[in-house]
Design a protein around this nucleic acid. Sequence first.
DNA 1: TAGCCCATGTAATTGGTTACATGATTGA
DNA 2: TCAATCATGTAACCAATTACATGGGCTA
Lengths: 198, 198
Amino acid sequence: MPENRTRYAVLGALTVEPMSGYDLKRFFEQGVSFFWTESYGQIYPILKQLKIEGLVVDAGEKTEAATRTGVPAHPRRAVYTVTPAGREALARWLAEPAEPQGGRRLEILLKLFFARQGGDRAAESARRLVADFRANHAALLATYTATEARLRAEHAAHPDLPFWLLTLSYGEHVSRALVAWCDAAGRTLAAPPTPPAP
Amino acid sequence: MPENRTRYAVLGALTVEPMSGYDLKRFFEQGVSFFWTESYGQIYPILKQLKIEGLVVDAGEKTEAATRTGVPAHPRRAVYTVTPAGREALARWLAEPAEPQGGRRLEILLKLFFARQGGDRAAESARRLVADFRANHAALLATYTATEARLRAEHAAHPDLPFWLLTLSYGEHVSRALVAWCDAAGRTLAAPPTPPAP
DNA sequence: TAGCCCATGTAATTGGTTACATGATTGA
DNA sequence: TCAATCATGTAACCAATTACATGGGCTA
């Protein structure tokens, strides 16, 4: 029973900066997508709910035009801010122990586990599986280092920075380990060498 | 769109050995639980479906008693075997590339990312978070090495063994890396040392 | 004025777990 | 004969994604 982690993800994101639902989506997909994602189908309903519960408030932004002309236009977008009650709820959740694991379904391992059933091409497709996976994590490593540099430059003084770097470091550790695993696996799966020329 | 991986998990498991739904549950939770799980609510419906599609057949086992007495008792349990068509379906799936990643929601990183919002106790609960996580992966490492030894001993000749060992190796690489990350994180989060006695 | 983001939302569907109901078999 | 385990299944629920509908604002 994961118990509503989306609400805390949203609450947490709004402590970084007040945001609209649209902003939240981008925050998740551009900022923390390597360990967390959210879809509109989650975000908007949860925002409505959090507002009802008084954990966030909506400081509706006026449009430029509406401000200028005084037209009583409905706010162009809803910008949500965490209330003290929201901060407390978040703090309570943060103090609880985390679910032991996330991501109990690793498709690549399932395929590898049964790889021999792949017939003639079994070894070949296993190697391709591993090679793709390696490329993936090598690419991730590059993004981690780039992100780290950007964060250190742009948010050098941000009090949350040390924690953000910790999450990046997690990603780096895992991806480095997985690249190493891919290399080892590649050797294991290597096609039997063609007989050496005489 | 993860697209029905359960059917292939079940199909694959049945290539290892014909099994009942009950057996399958145990196979997943005792054999491969570190990278895959299935619940009854998935297993039984999918078995019914696979049977309809002709990918598995049910060689119903008779009870001992029924065999002895000739009573037309209904089979005690349904034991499923993969058909050639089932093997083909599995092989096709194995040849497809795997989903890039599994487990996009790492609760511990979400908590760590927002950890500073935890108030006074922020650093403390972050440290506990990391410590629990470390204990977890240290324990996992132990089970991996134990499982590896057992597999090598009990299934030395099994043609699937090299692939099984690869999945274990994945786990070892990741858990070792995460233990190392926890140690580094622990140092980062270390409480400011109490002022040294004069 | 067309095309592209910005922005909000919902309905349908999927994938999965949990909890429960039911009953047979086995062994103490 | 009681408890544990084997065994099959389903209904309710939950979390989450996808696809769609809708429309405002900005700029080339």
